[in-house]
């Protein structure tokens, strides 16, 4: 699916990286543990997380992840958004929980890694 589809499925809001909404994403990974994310080998992952701090953006940067979905309306700070912009990372926020976001996206074909 495209990031545009992701936004629609979780009724999300795009905070930065609107220009990349046509990007394809095949795999999803939901975690609040950054070292867990850092073990992933695949690229083009949608990171679904409730951890809203600089380290979430940094972890995405180090793992070559270019899209993050923040759940439960966790509002990223301006610093986080600036960091994400620099790295061409798209940030989407949704009111849905991690469980609901993952469920909806899985149902629509986003693949798990494990």
């Amino acid at each position: 699916m495209t990031l545009r589809d992701v936004v629609e499925i979780v009724q999300g809001t795009v905070l930065c990286g609107e220009e990349f909404l046509d990007r394809e994403v095949k795999l999803g990974f939901a975690s609040d543990l950054m070292s867990d994310v850092l073990t992933l080998l695949a690229d083009d992952i949608l990171l679904i997380t409730g951890l809203s701090n600089n380290q979430a953006i940094r972890t995405a940067e180090m793992s070559d992840i270019t899209q993050i979905l923040f759940v439960r309306n966790k509002k990223p700070t301006k610093t986080m958004i600036d960091l994400a912009r620099e790295q061409n990372i798209t940030i989407i926020v949704t009111a849905c929980s991690m469980f609901k976001s993952s469920g909806l996206l899985y149902q629509k074909g986003l693949q798990p890694i494990y």
């Binding site: 609040d32 543990l33 950054m34 867990d36 701090n53 380290q55 972890t59």
Partner: peptide, 12 residues
């Protein structure tokens, strides 16, 4: 709280 502490850093 920062998202670390899984004990996976060194193995990683």
């Amino acid at each position: 709280e920062m998202g670390f502490g899984a004990g996976m850093g060194l193995p990683n």
